[in-house]
């Protein structure tokens, strides 16, 4: 094994491997950096900016930035967490996130990050955009109301399933996940067993006939904050 790359996160000394990203090296050392568009096994995308850290004082996405010797990284500080809270707040107000009837509630990464960052209610006015549902596919549906455009389905379908079912259509505020400019999900070769069908961090791409399978109190983020599995794994 080649030499380690030594750097610090919030004063803690981390030994990274050459080619690792800051997020991966931190995770190996038991330091959780909040993330949303990052998913293990997918090409890092760097679009949600929730994993933003300060490297020698400059903001960078920890999921795409490789480790370098001697870098001083700030992550779990008031300043950086305030930036992350703002991003989560904006994601909540720009879509229609009705947690009270969402199948993903309790297992949703957006919601879990809001819990972890201590958000009781977003501080911006809600936009309540009009968004569509695509219920055409036999086994999977898309609820655009909940989509946060993390592109995990795009990458999972393209890189893991080898299908390229999803991509983005339109621009700016009108940007949306699409299967084609005009087609519906039923017109694609998406299968319910595809990685793309389970890559969604929120309740935008959901398998049908699963519903509210896990009772309150037993869901992923009911008792412990998101990321605590990384922190406790290192403590053992």
């Amino acid at each position: 094994m080649s030499a380690t790359i030594d750097f610090t996160i919030d004063g803690k000394e981390i030994k990274g491997q050459p080619g690792q990203t800051i997020l991966e090296a931190a995770q190996q050392a038991g330091v959780y950096i909040p993330r949303l568009c990052y998913m293990k096994g997918l090409t890092p995308w760097g679009s949600c900016r929730v994993c933003t850290v300060l490297i020698n004082g400059r903001p960078q996405a920890a999921c795409t930035q490789p480790v370098a010797p001697g870098m001083v990284v700030e992550s779990n500080t008031d300043k950086v967490n305030a930036l992350r809270r703002n991003i989560i707040d904006m994601l909540f107000v720009e879509g229609n996130h009705f947690c009270m009837f969402c199948e993903k509630s309790g297992n949703c990464e957006l919601q879990a990050l809001a819990y972890r960052l201590g958000i009781a209610a977003p501080k911006y006015p809600f936009m309540f955009p009009k968004r569509e549902l695509d219920m055409s596919h036999a086994d999977v549906f898309i609820d655009h109301n909940r989509c946060i455009q993390c592109a995990r389905c795009v990458r999972a379908s393209r890189d893991v399933d080898g299908k390229h079912v999803f991509d983005f259509a339109d621009r700016g505020a009108h940007r949306r996940i699409a299967v084609d400019a005009e087609a519906f999900l039923k017109d694609t070769d998406l299968a319910v067993t595809d990685k793309a069908a389970e890559a969604c961090p929120v309740g935008a791409i959901v398998k049908k006939r699963v519903g509210y399978a896990v009772p309150f109190g037993q869901r992923l983020y009911d008792k412990e904050p998101i990321g605590s599995e990384i922190e406790t794994a290192a403590a053992k």
């Binding site: 947690c99 309540f128 955009p129 009009k130």
Partner: peptide, 16 residues
């Protein structure tokens, strides 16, 4: 509650 903090179920009409 969610209705007071974000509109909740009644706010489903906000898209119409």
């Amino acid at each position: 509650g969610d209705c007071a903090t974000m509109g909740g179920i009644p706010a489903l009409r906000n898209m119409v």
